[in-house]
């Protein structure tokens, strides 16, 4: 999924990667293009994890992991960081999800009755970044659908997701609902519909392989 998501990156993009699987997209950035990673705690030009012995407690990412700077990196305040995000200056955000609706509503921050940790910067990212792509397993651990007609969990944002990359397929959120544009190897249209709680259309490119 992370490798497929990396194909969404274009030369010159400023990109924010969410915590978890989205972080792995950084390992698959296509050769020959320049992508600048933004971390919302105040860093543009995030590099890989440091070598042993080069750990700097003053240099972490939004997941609170120790990181490094690439050449040309900059650091700034939280207000400036979110001016980039809310002001529409970030080209792409790749985030995880609990649920996505056919209208592009996203739920990824709380489950009522369970421990609530907070939304962090997720609501700002989905409302401000130009393009929002979700990467997620197609269904939850217990097999229930994550792609739905309407989200049942508290929302992070409404009509904010443009594309969803799952382990089974890639789909776009269109005015007419979910449209599958790619199927993973061995996945049938029938199988996909069975694991999605919304009606889905298939573009001609969604070929069973």
């Amino acid at each position: 999924m992370a490798a497929r998501a990396a194909q969404e990156l274009k030369d010159g993009f400023y990109v924010n990667l969410g915590i978890g699987i989205p972080t792995l997209v950084a390992n698959h950035i296509p050769k020959g293009i320049t992508v600048t990673l933004q971390s919302e705690n105040g860093l543009l030009g995030m590099g890989p994890f440091p070598l042993h012995g080069q750990v700097d407690p003053d240099l972490i990412n939004a997941g609170k992991q120790t990181v490094t700077l690439v050449r040309g990196a900059s650091t700034f305040s939280s207000a400036d960081s979110f001016a980039m995000i809310r002001g529409g200056h970030i080209d792409l955000a790749i985030l995880g999800a609990m649920q996505v609706s056919e209208h592009g509503d996203l739920a990824n921050w709380m489950i009522p009755g369970k421990r609530v940790k907070g939304m962090g910067g997720a609501m700002d990212l989905v409302s401000g970044v130009r393009r929002v792509i979700v990467i997620t397993e197609h269904t939850a651990g217990d097999g229930t659908a994550k792609l739905l007609r309407a989200c049942t969990l508290p929302l992070t944002g409404t009509r904010v997701v443009q594309r969803v990359i799952t382990n089974l397929c890639v789909l776009d959120v269109t005015p007419a609902g979910f449209e599958v544009i790619e199927l993973a190897d061995g996945v049938t249209r029938e199988h996909l519909q069975r694991h999605t709680d919304a009606s889905i259309r298939f573009s001609d490119a969604a070929i069973e392989r």
């Binding site: 890989p48 994890f49 440091p50 070598l51 042993h52 080069q54 750990v55 407690p57 003053d58 972490i60 997941g63 609170k64 992991q65 120790t66 990181v67």
Partner: peptide
């Protein structure tokens, strides 16, 4: 300056 998550890579 405690660190919450020390993450490193191999050389």
């Amino acid at each position: 300056k405690r660190i919450e998550k020390i993450t490193t890579r191999e050389a």
